[in-house]
Simulated assay, not measured.
Amino acid sequence: MREATANGIKLVYREEGSEADPLLVLLHGRTADHNNWNGITQHFARRYHVLVPDLRGHGASDHPGSYALTDMADDIAGLLAGRRAVVVGHSLGGVVAYFLAVRHPELVERLVLEDPVPPVPMTGRAPIEEDDSTGFDWQMMHQTEKQLISPDPTLPGVLAGITAPTLVVSGGPSSHIRSEPLAALIPGAELVTIDAGHLIHENARAEFLGVVDDFLKI
């Protein structure tokens, strides 16, 4: 494990693969950490220099108490330090990834969004109730939930400015997220549905990797 100061906070990350290879970043979902990509990391490390950070408020990275999605995207920009990368994000990590592509387009070579929440208002979500779960900051849960339920109304239009080739992988009817509308907001985005629920890369790993490899032309 390594650590870096990015956007003013400590980010802890796993690094695998050769530094001579193109860069690929894996961004985990909410309440998870870099371990959520175990197996996936090794698959891509055969061809990429892979960075797998714990997002702020997760794992061993700093828990600063402030969790604007824009800040989370800027954290990853700081970690990249001017280097272009393929960015793969699951769930919250996918949201962070599309904010990164909007705010720092020069850093994103290709974008893979695995079942993220699209930037449309949501209703009917049960309030978050804290329990004894650890490994993340509960303030991160509360603050990101507010932003996901009531996103910036200008964001759908802003996504039209994403220039990186984009793949949206939906978990289909088995998922509690409807990520399909996101593909229509990003010019030229490809949509693939794998009816495996929200945790596509866990529940249908081989199919997920095949779809992503095809998109990346591996």
Results as ranks from 00 to 15, higher is better:
Gln147Ser: 07
Tyr67Asp: 07
Thr70Pro: 03
Pro118Thr: 09
Gly78Arg: 15
Gln42Val: 04
Leu55Gly: 01
Met72Phe: 07
Val108Asp: 00
Met122Arg: 14
Ile149Asp: 03
Thr166Leu: 00
Ala85Met: 07
Pro127His: 02
Val96Leu: 01
Ile76Glu: 14
Gly188Lys: 10
Gly210Thr: 05
Arg2Glu: 13
Asn7Lys: 06
Val86Ala: 09
Ala85Asn: 06
Leu191Ala: 07
His198Pro: 04
Met140Thr: 13
Ala101Pro: 04
Leu92Pro: 04
Glu129Ser: 06
Gly59Arg: 10
Glu145Ile: 10
Ala73His: 03
Val86Phe: 01
Asp132Trp: 11
Leu216Arg: 03
Ala68Trp: 15
Ile186Val: 15
Ser91Trp: 01
Thr70Asp: 15
Thr163Tyr: 00
Pro187Ala: 06
Glu207Leu: 04
Pro121Met: 09
Val50Pro: 00
Ala189Trp: 08
Gly197Glu: 05
Leu113Phe: 10
Pro165Cys: 04
Pro181Val: 11
Phe44Leu: 00
Ile162Trp: 06
Leu24Asp: 09
His201Gly: 06
Pro151Lys: 15
Asp54Lys: 12
Pro187Trp: 06
Pro165Lys: 05
Val192Lys: 12
Thr123Ala: 13
Asp195Gln: 00
Pro173Phe: 08
Leu159Asp: 03
Ile186Lys: 06
Ser18His: 04
Asp54Leu: 12
Arg2Ile: 04
Thr41Gln: 13
Pro118Ile: 07
Pro156Phe: 01
His63Leu: 11
Ala204Asp: 05
Asp71Trp: 14
Ser18Lys: 08
Thr5Arg: 13
Val211Lys: 07
Pro181Ala: 08
Thr144Tyr: 05
Thr144Ile: 04
Thr163His: 06
Trp37Thr: 02
Ala73Phe: 07
